[in-house]
Design a protein around this nucleic acid. Sequence first.
DNA 1: AATTCATATCTATATTTTTCGATATGTCGA
DNA 2: TCGACATATCGAAAAATATAGATATGAATT
Lengths: 100, 100
Amino acid sequence: MHVVEVSKVLSNGTRVNILKWLKDPELHFPPHQDIDHFDDGVCVGYIQDKTGLSQSTISTYLNSMQQAGLVIPTRHGKWTYYRRNEEVIQAYYSTLKEVL
Amino acid sequence: MHVVEVSKVLSNGTRVNILKWLKDPELHFPPHQDIDHFDDGVCVGYIQDKTGLSQSTISTYLNSMQQAGLVIPTRHGKWTYYRRNEEVIQAYYSTLKEVL
DNA sequence: AATTCATATCTATATTTTTCGATATGTCGA
DNA sequence: TCGACATATCGAAAAATATAGATATGAATT
């Protein structure tokens, strides 16, 4: 986990929101069509709808968040679901505590 | 305290280092000439020497860190000393804990 | 196999950030 | 008050990021 890389992700309000929303998908997103749970997170389209940004922008965001280790993608058929990577998030905390 | 603004500060290795160094000035900087303590932090010149970046760059960094509330400047004669603002740092933690 | 749908990647432009040298400001000492 | 020193600010060039439209890929459906 690289503090600087994770901080770059967090230096954008939309990306912070995405992480926030993924904390409680039931509260922030409609139910999925093909599956009846959020165990693997939320599909890209729902996240895009909620932000209002373009599909390619959201895909780029999610990719950078994945590179930083903050989210984990899972493919189900046509859809890619993204969920939080709690271990890395926790590691970011711990490191911040040392640094800050 | 604005999460995004603070995160921007932290998305640069040098600035993270500065915060780290300011945690224990005795360990990372030589003693000051005019005063015999680090109660108000460390002067700009010492920080600049340690980073190797230009004077104007460091001044800009410290200004952005101050804008974000992470450090507090104190003027003593010719020198400006910067120290950590523990309250804001703590607030950043707390907010992250809610968000992340 | 052709079409459709969801997502990823590519390309390009606009904006922001980084970083510096030059200059300005403020303070001390001669 | 003049020069030297520490820091701040300004202006500019280079690099990175943001964002979108166009296109590619991969999977499901017909």
